[in-house]
Design a binder for these strands. Sequence first.
DNA 1: CTCCTATTTGCAATATTGGCCAAATTCCCA
DNA 2: TGGGAATTTGGCCAATATTGCAAATAGGAG
Lengths: 106, 106
Amino acid sequence: MDAERQKRLEARARILKAVGNASRLLILEELAQGEKCVADLTKAVGSDISTVSKHLSLLKSVGLVRDEKRGNQVFYTLLAPCVLNFFDCVESVLEARVQHQIEMMG
Amino acid sequence: MDAERQKRLEARARILKAVGNASRLLILEELAQGEKCVADLTKAVGSDISTVSKHLSLLKSVGLVRDEKRGNQVFYTLLAPCVLNFFDCVESVLEARVQHQIEMMG
DNA sequence: CTCCTATTTGCAATATTGGCCAAATTCCCA
DNA sequence: TGGGAATTTGGCCAATATTGCAAATAGGAG
């Protein structure tokens, strides 16, 4: 595979990989409702705050969210709401899988 | 986070994770042109055929592709072309990132 | 300045992934 | 039945990812 294509695919993969994690998906869902601070997101996710902070920093590094410090808290905002459209496609894949499993049983 | 939501998010994450890898993205792009056998995909990807076979089996396990044995070769088909729509969103994120970097420099 | 709160960073432990090689499997053809 | 080609599977290793704890940092209030 040529190097140019390789680079392009790796750039894409980096973003998609960021979305391929349950905790980060939860964070994105929460942020879809509007900006949230790290503490709020930590409550929602249920892991250590340092873990959540790292997830956020990853999402930020790929450009999916933005952070803004106000007082001593940091608020995160969803930058690419289009990622939420992924989910329709993903759901359709899940449903097709279930359908397929039912057929296999019959 | 409640267990139901957790499960739903993990199911989604599994699918998205499958897409978050450069080799697998390449495979999906190739399959977007029509069905291909493992050997053809191996040529395109450039890793060992056993590696490509494992990528394919992962893509199949999450329901993104289907396989069909004909003779002694196995042909893979893209089942969820909607994943290709992800890429527009991903591209927009990439471009926004570049834009942001330019602003930072100015 | 000092304390308190919110967040990030460094570190170590553990888990997962991606890759290759070798062996097993499957199917065709003689 | 035996051999050869295509693919999958198992084993193993290196690289990467995920997590929590503890320490560092940044900001606001007194």
